[in-house]
Design a protein around this nucleic acid. Structure first.
Length: 389
RNA sequence: GCUGAGGUGGUGGAGCGGUCAAUCACAACAGACUGUAAAUCUGUCGUCCGAAAGGGCUACGUAGGUUCAAAUCCUGCCCUCAGCA
């Protein structure tokens, strides 16, 4: 019901297929983020047209609203949102332990921590109504069982890089314990399931070689069906992502898929990650940037590592009749002018965010498609050079 | 023509003797965006010098006046709006 096969490799880069109960994912692949059972602004038809293969939803958000009872009535979040392809869910670990730190990257103002983390789990307050909830590794597995994704994540405790060493170590050890508990509960839950869910163990450790390797070895020893690479270093800086992945790339097994959680850095970051063995990744900024007017462009359109292969639609000329991209085949590029897109974004029209999301998701998927073909034809390094030189 | 209200920075709109280069919002410009509390957030925003601290200059329709001190008080003029002729 779930398996992974590598079809071709080029250096550490690999092209393969993940077989899930709801279809295949041709890798390397981007999985758009549908936190609240929606890839913001896009419906499933637009997603399919944008060549999305799978979507990733979130335990924390769907547990709080609409609640797992509702999701269960619909046989999972995928039927609920009318998505029939492969799915993933995140465990909620990121939300309860990272976003709720008194100081976090998303908020300028400090605020009281609304979460208390113990070895048992994370006691947190809902951001919606302030109600108290305890999320444990076991509970996360039960919720993800109800959400019904094909691929689910172990419950972990990521930290921001600014945390003290003591806290880092604590979270590292705790994550290992939580992963084992996640695994045990997951094993039990599988017995009563119609479809197999693949649980991914999460590798922490940032750029610390010893920690990364210990973490990965643990996940391998437990025999998780898949591996997810977590941590702040998998974020937006391509150079640091590279550094983090280099610590463990040689240990990656070829029979298990590797997912990079929240891999950012645009095409350059992705090229770095794929060249170091990453098969799938999710990233929120693809659709978020679309909603704020930033779109990805190909080298043919002027994309470079310097401009991070992106351009601000609000800076287009008022009367520019040309398409956003000459190369892209999405409906946004086929049917609308730069002038119109600029107009929509400058005036905060909702259609703008949607049209740009269509483009960005299409771009990302087409980029991954090209990248995959490059690996299959053993020309990955040339492909990488075309983009980054 | 009479009566009333009012004229503030790109715009709307506060301020009604000193703490005002002037709250705030919008626009504009620049920037950020990691497993989405993000259609969000941050910075700049009279002008000149400065990296900054800070300093200079010009400003609240216009011309005068009162006062140690005026966007704020008084007078003339110009203009806008509402009501009445």
């Amino acid at each position: 019901m779930f398996s992974f096969e590598v079809l071709e490799t080029d250096g550490f880069a690999r092209a393969g297929t993940i077989h899930t109960p709801h279809g295949d994912i041709k890798t390397p692949a981007f999985t758009p983020v549908a936190t609240q059972a929606t890839v913001k602004t896009l419906d499933v038809h637009e997603l399919t047209k944008a060549h999305a293969q799978a979507v990733l939803a979130n335990t924390y958000h769907l547990y709080l609203s609409p609640g797992i009872e509702v999701i269960q009535e619909f046989d999972g979040f995928a039927p609920f949102m009318n998505w029939s392809g492969p799915t993933l869910t995140d465990s909620g670990g990121y939300q309860v332990s990272f976003l709720w730190e008194p100081k976090n990257i998303h908020s300028k103002t400090e605020r009281a921590a609304s979460v208390k983390i113990t070895d048992e789990g994370a006691l947190f307050r809902s951001h919606i109504d302030g109600s108290k909830h305890l999320l444990t590794p076991e509970k996360s597995m039960e919720i993800q069982d109800a959400l019904g994704a094909d691929i689910i994540m172990a419950f972990d405790q990521p930290l921001s890089l600014s945390s003290s060493e003591k806290r880092q170590n604590e979270a590292f050890i705790r994550t290992l314990q939580w992963e084992e508990r996640s695994f045990r509960r997951w094993e039990d839950l599988q017995k009563n399931r119609k479809n197999f869910q693949a649980l991914y163990g999460i590798v922490q450790g940032e750029t610390d070689v010893k920690k990364r390797q210990e973490s990965l070895q643990f996940v391998l020893n437990m025999n998780f069906p898949g591996i997810a690479i977590g941590g702040a270093t998998i974020g937006s800086d391509p150079a640091i992502t590279k550094q983090a992945l280099e610590t463990i790339v040689e240990m990656f097994p070829n029979n298990k898929p590797i997912h990079a959680l929240g891999l950012g850095g645009g095409p350059e970051g992705i090229l770095n990650a794929v060249s170091l063995g990453i098969d799938t990744f999710d990233n929120t900024s693809v659709t978020r940037m679309a909603r704020t007017g930033l779109v990805f462009i190909y080298p043919e359109d002027g994309g470079t590592t310097k401009n991070k292969f992106r351009i601000d639609t609000k800076k287009f000329k008022k009367n520019d009749r040309s398409p956003l991209s000459n190369k892209c085949t999405c409906t946004t590029c086929k049917e609308y002018s730069r002038a119109y897109l600029r107009h929509l974004m400058v005036n905060d029209e909702l259609l703008g965010g949607r049209l740009l999301s269509i483009h960005n998701v299409t771009f990302m998927n087409m980029f991954m498609h090209e990248l995959r073909n490059a690996i299959l034809s053993k020309s990955f390094s040339d492909f990488k050079k075309e983009w980054t030189s």
